[in-house]
């Protein structure tokens, strides 16, 4: 966003922060608060976006408890748990990257973000393996459902919720990885400093939100 060309390298080894926007002139603290607050409001919209799917899960689980029980047992617990651990760990590295960027250690932050992106990629790969398995079995939503091992009525409804919820989540993982890539490049250019690290923080917040959604999806889909 900000013009980087005009910014000079300080003695501490990072670029001088960009000027405060004109309408916040003289009050950088308010600007900092505004940027963070805006991100939290955006996260609230994301939470409400997923709310509808959780409501769908709750309704169909109430309607078809046996089918949901059977279907949950047919998900790969190993892959699901691995993915949970991957996402939690990537959240740690993102938090550490934020910590480093805030202290002007841009290179550390860069490598930590790179690791996080790699873990996000790993998550997607595992998800792809799971999806392939579902397609092979015919454990699919609606009229595509052809999975003989689920005998209770309502089996397809589990897979509607499963594919919508994990699909929307995977989309968020992809967006999150793109955001992390964007801030990682800026870390490489040593743009962040103790007074200017909002992009790392906000991209990190987004990534943690992706993590939060998965924290609920994992037990609901795989365990109970």
């Amino acid at each position: 966003m900000e013009a980087t060309s005009a910014r000079v390298m300080t003695a501490e080894g990072y670029l001088a922060p960009p000027p405060t926007p004109h309408h916040y002139e003289g009050n950088p603290a308010a600007h900092k608060h505004a940027v963070r607050f805006g991100m939290w409001l955006f996260l609230a919209t994301e939470i409400l976006l997923f709310a509808g799917l959780f409501v769908g899960y709750a309704v169909f689980r109430t309607d078809f408890p046996e089918a949901f029980d059977q279907a949950a047992r047919h998900l790969s617990l190993f892959l699901g748990t691995t993915n949970t651990l991957l996402l939690l760990t990537s959240s740690l590295t993102v938090a550490l990257a934020h910590h480093n960027a805030e202290h002007g250690k841009n290179r550390n932050a860069f490598w930590l973000l790179l690791v996080s992106i790699a873990m996000g990629g790993g998550f997607l790969c595992i998800k792809a393996i799971e999806y392939t398995e579902k397609f092979r079995e015919g454990a699919l939503p609606g009229r595509f459902f052809a999975f003989s091992e689920i005998t209770a009525p309502g089996g397809p409804m589990f897979y509607v919720v499963y594919f919508f919820a994990t699909g929307l989540h995977a989309l968020h993982v992809i967006v999150g990885m793109s955001l992390l890539t964007w801030v990682a490049i800026r870390c490489w250019h040593k743009e962040f400093s103790p007074t200017h690290y909002a992009p790392v923080e906000n991209a990190g917040l987004y990534w943690h939100l992706v993590d939060l959604v998965w924290i609920f999806l994992y037990p609901l889909l795989y365990l109970v």
């Binding site: 309704v59 078809f64 609606g142 009229r143 009525p153 309502g154 397809p156 409804m157 509607v160």
Partner: peptide, 17 residues
Amino acid sequence: AFGFGFFDPARGGDPVL
């Protein structure tokens, strides 16, 4: 587009939802 049945009672979905 795909007829997943989220809101289709014939497939177990719920139009009231």
